[in-house]
Design a binder for these strands. Structure first.
Lengths: 160, 160
DNA sequence: TATTGTTATACTCTATAACTATA
DNA sequence: TATAGTTATAGAGTATAACAATA
């Protein structure tokens, strides 16, 4: 299989700032590279807009997960979001201090704590989810509704 | 707009380990969430397989970029791969110490250094690119060739 | 004055080991 | 013996400020 590889060194006169003329043909044919670039693009816009709610990506994910699954334990949240248990502790503590969720002892398992949104947490999450839904549409404005649906389906086929 | 949100708390008897039965319907409708999950899935397999070449994702990206664009300056590489200049320094130094690339003074700009793969670097990159291409196909085995092509096209529409 | 490459540094994110209390 | 939550800590990744050499 022949390698497509330019032999001519790049213009010796203009180092320049732009990305124009740089050959990234190999990386562009890889799903991983493109998925990462697309994810970072959307996450960048997420961070800009969600700063108003003082929510990072993982914090929003936890809140949204608990909004739809009240009483989930830390272990459940970790499994669903691929978070290491030690890293969830500080996160939950911070959200608890902000009055957005609370830990309640599990009724039948003395080791476990159920996580529940407070009314404030519910309200904020409702707003935040709407903001995220809008932000996602804006961040993927180059896609038609149909393309967006197809993209999500194909991405899920990759990791499911 | 009604919120779909379960009101019934989760089973009080089985905290469990699995992810079964957890409702992640909201997150699953977001492109950003799915793109990140898919990227992490592929990157995980990348790290496993490319450990044989002692190459991390960013290191491979730099090598592949230089293979197709000999003489690129640090500034170019940073712009093309969204790396902060201070973070590229150690990376290039390490690859140089491994004998995979070398810095040559730019012929017309005394500040700049052109980056070039050594013959060893070229050889390793050729092997690594083949390994990555295979790994990508394996990591996206649930997709047909046509779906894979569509996925890449849609991802590029998002961030281009 | 602006830019390239660099150093030093700080901040964030993620990962590992070990402890406690319960099961 | 195993598991849930936690603590402390280490490591990787990413970001900013400032400097020397050159444009």
């Amino acid at each position: 299989m022949p390698r497509l590889r330019s032999t001519k060194p790049r213009s010796a006169t203009t180092p320049g700032t732009d990305t124009e003329g740089i050959d990234i043909s190999f990386l562009r044919t890889q799903v991983g590279y493109n998925a990462r670039r697309a994810a970072l693009h959307i996450i960048g816009i997420f961070m800009e807009r969600m700063a108003a709610y003082e929510l990072k990506v993982v914090e929003f994910s936890v809140l949204s997960l608990l909004a739809h699954n009240p009483g989930l334990t830390s272990r459940h949240v970790c499994a669903a979001l691929s978070i290491m248990p030690p890293n969830l502790v500080g996160l939950v503590t911070a959200l608890e201090k902000r009055g957005l969720l609370e830990r309640r002892p599990h009724p039948s398992d003395g080791r476990a704590m159920g996580l529940y949104l407070t009314p404030d947490g519910e309200a904020l999450t409702t707003e935040a989810e709407q903001a995220v839904a809008q932000l996602e549409v804006d961040a993927t404005a180059n896609l038609t509704a149909s393309e967006r649906k197809t993209l999500i389906r194909l991405l899920q086929k990759v990791y499911d």
